[in-house]
Amino acid sequence: MYAHLRTYRRGLFYILLLLSFNNCTQSDSTPVTAQQRSIQHKALPPSTFDTILYRKKLLQLANSDKTGRWPVASAIPAEGAVLPFNRVVAFYGNFYSKHMGILGEFSTGIMLEKLKLQVEEWEQADTSMPVIAAIHYIAVTAQSNAGDGYYRARMPEKEISKAIALGDSVKGLVFLDIQPGLSTLQQELPRLEKYLQLPNVHLGIDAEYSMKTGRPPGSSIGSFDADDINYASEWLQTLVKKNKLPSKILVVHRFTAPMLTNYTQITTRPEVQIVINMDGFGNVALKKSTYHHFIFKQPVQFAGFKVFYKNDAVNGNPVMQPNEILRLTPVPVYIQYQ
């Protein structure tokens, strides 16, 4: 089963890694119009933290789990926490590439209209939870060439600023994603600090492209250890306290067992909400199985689920819809579309 998933996933690996940052052109520079700003979110974290409501929401997300795994005993979030009071629906990708996700596949206007419709689908599917739109932008991309030796490309400031402007235009959130290659979170996070100081900008980290073996991305699937997650979480915690920010969300991509080692040693913190995002693609049965093994059976704090508009639909397979995703245990609180 897992070999099947790796076969699916590596197809995307090589598409992505054959892209050369130096030869890419920006897919669209169209300014955001007033009409495109019409996407509204309903971010309603309580002004005074409501512990009773928090626990009620966690039980709701546990979806009547009888095993005792969910809800997870974790740190009570600080005031201003987005989760579990809201569901985040994010569009993922990089503006330089049509192959890395929906953010780069369409013009700005079309992409934002599709995001608006996707948010509305989730609002209709689950009226009990407000939905927040998000832009999940790959700010550090894994590369097939060594470059400066780290097999990763750091996106320029104008592209990161574009992502943040789009997040502002939908009154939503922004996630800056790191695919480290042969670099490390210790090297990459400080460069993004000025962006992560903004209250609506959060962090994503991709274990698939964290190449601790020293081999180039694409030669094997990478990994993070609990130590890596704890480093990122503590770094964000310090940033939140120093700048008096609302809680940050940390999204960790995962779709195999070795991608996240020693998960029981991950520390949760009031200032950081950790989402383990099921990042595999394939048919519905395969996606559900992967979610069961690596999200349900290995709980950390919150669950995420990724939908691939194209790769999930290979050979005419149906793409999972909100009503079907809502039946998963636990119920994902972060949904990502590529």
Rank of each mutant, 00 (worst) to 15 (best):
L5K: 03
Y8I: 12
I15K: 15
Q26L: 02
S29Q: 07
V32I: 14
K56L: 07
K57H: 11
L58R: 12
Q60H: 14
A62F: 10
D65C: 06
G68Q: 03
A78D: 13
A81W: 09
V82C: 14
V88S: 03
N94K: 10
S97A: 10
K98N: 00
E105W: 15
S107A: 10
I110H: 13
E113H: 08
E113T: 07
L115Y: 02
E121W: 01
W122A: 10
E123P: 12
A133H: 02
A134L: 05
Y137L: 10
I138R: 07
A139K: 10
S144P: 00
R152D: 12
E157G: 02
K158A: 01
S161L: 12
D177T: 11
Q179C: 09
P180C: 05
T184S: 08
L185H: 08
Q187D: 12
P190S: 07
Q197F: 03
V201H: 06
H202T: 12
A232Y: 05
N243C: 04
N243M: 06
L245A: 02
T264H: 08
E271A: 08
V275D: 05
M278H: 07
D279V: 11
L286Q: 08
Y291W: 10
H293D: 07
K297S: 14
N315Y: 13
V319D: 07
V333G: 08
Y337E: 13
